[in-house]
Each structure stands twice: as C-alpha cells, then as structure tokens.
Write a protein that binds this DNA or RNA. Structure first.
Length: 297
DNA sequence: TACTCGTGGCT
DNA sequence: TAGCCAAGAGT
C-alpha cells in the first residue's frame, strides 16, 4: 500500500505520475543506460539553460569524455571551450573540478551519497538531490524552479512562487514527497516535467493539466500574482555581455591571443579591463607574458 | 540576503 | 518589440 487512499496528496501523486508516464519527453539523460555521470553532466548544463540548447553540447561532451576521469585528464580550458555557448561558463570550470574531485575522492565514480555529492564543486542543494534521485533512485525533495512553481500553485494557491527559493519551499516539497522510495523518485522527475511542459511560468496550459481539478490556484479562480515585482535581468551593456564577447574570442582561438584582439570586443576601456580581470580572477582566462591571453591550461 | 554570472528563444 | 524566462551555485 503506497498511499492512504483518499488522501489529497495521494491523489495528486497518482494524477501526476500517470500523466508523466504518458507524456514525458524522451531525453538522453533519462535513458536507464545513461549512468550517473551522464545525469551529472546534464544537470550542470541544465542549470539555467533550456533543454533544446543543452542537447547537442551534452552529446558531444559525453562522446568526448565518457567518464569523469576522461574530463579530469584534460586542461580546464578544454572544458570551457566545449561548453560552447551554453552560458555561465564557470559551470564548465566547476564540472571539470568536480570530475577531478570524483577521481581523487571517489575512485572515478560519481558518488551516490547526497552529502558527498553536495561537497563537489558546482553541486548545490538542487543538483545533489537531482543526481541522487535521478541517477540512484533515492528519495529526496528535488526542488528546482519548476517544482517551486507547481507546488506554489497546486498547494499554496498562488500564481507564482517567491522570487528566490526559501526554506518554506523546501519544507513544502518534503511534505509533498511520497513516502515510498521508488514513488518519490518518480514524483521528483514527474513534478518537474509537469512544471516544464504544462505548469509553465508565463502561460500555463491548465486545460491540459492532470491536476487542474485539485489545484489550489485554479480552485481559487487563478488569481494574479500579488508579490513584489520581479526585476528583469538586463543584459545589454553589462559586464556579462563583455565577458561573453571576450570569452567567445578565446574559445575560437586555440593558442595565445594578443590583447589587441580582445580590445576589439568592446569600446569602453574601463569596462573591458574590468571584465577581463574578472575572467582571470574566475580562472576562465589565463594571462600570458607579452600581453597575451588564452583559456586555462 | 541580494547580487553576480551568458545566451538565445518565445510571447 | 522588449521583456521574460530557462533542471542554480557561489559569495
């Protein structure tokens, strides 16, 4: 007996799990043969980057580095180059460092222990739970932006979750987690998928939602968002844009790049220098003698 | 806590 | 069109 029959949560679980079985996307990291390293690579790439853009980079990455030790043996700059235009290239550096840590601490195998995962570079609360749940079938609250939104609507009855993750979100997700281990692991991926495909941020497809008859937000008449305004991410003219341009040049060149080539990226001298210094400080760029730069070796 | 950190598709 | 948004982590 997995559920107390008649329990509202049990009904929610059943509806979402049945929907997932019929509607889940076929994604390579969900293949049972994919393995923990493949799951881990996908989770790093999917941090703030949409699935469609991750797919090709993911395939190339695993083809080139099928095991953590393969990546760990290469210079970090190769990880940054292979990261291509996924964005937030520090993730590439962290994935490389995590691969090295896996070789040093765990004999080259992705650990199945939540605490050990959390101790790896670039692995936070979400990613540790995701790897433990998706790759090892463990029972964890896997709380990403999709799950926060689904729970905010279905259980709390508001249009959007809070702007940043809170301890309350985590507690709510733990409360909503099925007791049975295997069911919990399926619920983790299924509730996330529901948020990605149906219970979307902008225009949720409530007409296709398997839990619309149980959704606290829908039952309340789908009231609009009331919270504080979400501040938009500006990008034009930011240091991030400059960093992106500088790094794009360095990715395309395999050797040393003269500073003059980097100077052509951006007019504002002060901002350009600040961005370049930041890249060096982050370990994404290596300064060389004679005013030259390259990806880290 | 609030901020930083890329990139590009979608509405 | 121009925001809005995307499987967050680190500081």
């Amino acid at each position: 007996m997995l559920y107390q029959s008649g329990s509202p949560l049990a009904s929610l679980h059943t509806s979402v799990l049945e929907w997932y079985d019929a509607n889940a996307r076929v994604l390579p990291w969900r293949d049972p043969a994919a393995g923990p390293w493949a799951v881990m690579v996908s989770e790093f790439m999917l941090q703030q980057t949409p699935v469609a853009r991750v797919l090709p980079a993911y395939q190339r990455w695993l083809e080139r580095w099928p095991k953590p030790a393969d990546l760990a043996a290469e210079p970090p700059g190769e990880a940054v180059r292979a990261w291509d235009r996924l964005g937030y290239p520090r993730r590439a550096l962290r994935l490389h460092a995590a691969a090295q840590a896996i070789v040093e601490r765990h004999g080259g195998e992705v650990p199945d222990d939540h605490a050990a995962l959390l101790a790896l570079p670039g692995v936070g609360t979400y990613t540790a739970a995701a790897i433990a749940s998706f790759a090892f079938g463990q029972r964890h609250a896997v709380v990403d932006t999709n799950v926060r939104r689904v729970l905010a609507r279905a259980l709390t009855g508001v249009a959007q979750p809070t702007i940043s993750p809170t301890a309350a979100d985590q507690r709510l997700a733990v409360t909503a987690l099925p007791e049975d281990v295997r069911t919990a692991a399926r619920w983790a991926v299924a509730s996330m998928e529901l948020g990605a495909l149906i219970c979307t941020a902008r225009t949720p497809r409530c007409g296709d939602c398997p839990i619309r008859s149980q959704c606290a937000w829908v039952l309340a008449g789908s009231p609009p968002y009331e919270g504080p305004p979400r501040k938009g991410q500006t990008y034009e003219g930011t240091d991030r844009q400059v960093r992106g341009r500088l790094l794009a040049v360095l990715r395309s060149e395999h050797g040393a790049v003269p500073k003059k080539a980097l100077d052509a990226c951006w007019q504002d001298h002060v901002q350009r220098e600040r961005a370049l210094d930041g890249l060096v400080a982050d370990g994404l760029v290596e300064p060389l003698p004679r005013n030259q730069y390259r990806l880290p070796t």
